[in-house]
Design a protein around this nucleic acid. Sequence first.
DNA 1: TTGTTAATGCGACTTTGTTGCAATAAAGCA
DNA 2: TGCTTTATTGCAACAAAGTCGCATTAACAA
Lengths: 127, 127
Amino acid sequence: MKRRNTKSKTEILEILKSSSNSALSHEMLQEKLNSNIDRATIYRVLNRFCDDGWVHRIVGDDGKQYFALCLNCGEKKGEHNHNHFHFRCLQCGTVECLENEIDIPLPKGYMAKSINGLISGYCNNCS
Amino acid sequence: MKRRNTKSKTEILEILKSSSNSALSHEMLQEKLNSNIDRATIYRVLNRFCDDGWVHRIVGDDGKQYFALCLNCGEKKGEHNHNHFHFRCLQCGTVECLENEIDIPLPKGYMAKSINGLISGYCNNCS
DNA sequence: TTGTTAATGCGACTTTGTTGCAATAAAGCA
DNA sequence: TGCTTTATTGCAACAAAGTCGCATTAACAA
Ligand SMILES: [Mn+2]
Ligand SMILES: [Mn+2]
Ligand SMILES: [Zn+2]
Ligand SMILES: [Zn+2]
């Protein structure tokens, strides 16, 4: 199943690029869209991006999913890990990728598959 | 508004105590219940526990809320912080509190209100 | 025992995200 | 360019999680 370049895919990717370092929810994305792309399509495009490793998904403490381009996702080491924290501002809603890498020592016999670290509070602009 | 001791409150608290160190979702709780407590009531009881500081809420990367008694929530320092990671097993569904305390250095001007750290993977029994 | 009101049950509702299916349109090829 | 294949879309339906309004019940204090 080879991927195709569609208008939706292109436009959504553009938006993600232009809002670099901050992750967008489906809703935020839809507001920024020019065309009227269906909700289900947006989700499907985003999920495909995640599957292909272009984007990583953050689950907020508000229960919503946020999506961000993979920029500093452990490329330094040659691998691709989303082991950084995120910050969600309770005032303006922005979700940002933080720099710090997470390295939590797990108990014996535990195997990590994915990490979702999120701090919420007030960002630089809102505090 | 003074809290009252009801059958629901007592029973839910018992269950949380008996499954110490592992957090329960609303669904898990309902399965363990003897009486038929309404879904909305369960949520309301749990939210009250959270408000009163007996319980802390974890938002899983599955988007669900999990609730755990506050046992090792920073009492050592006299304060009450839920700054520890949690582990969710993709196989058996268990959500556990990990020991390690988190201390993420935030950028200047940022203020943390709450931390939600979750690692998912396979637990000791399932890996 | 009685009065006050916190807590419950029930139903309706919202939001988030997924899925089935028919219609559309990329991309590869004649 | 026109044709074929099938990935992608739009739309509707659906599921699950969580909240809320309101009438009823029951905790608890007087
Ligand atoms: Mn990130
Ligand atoms: Mn915990
Ligand atoms: Zn902000
Ligand atoms: Zn397990």
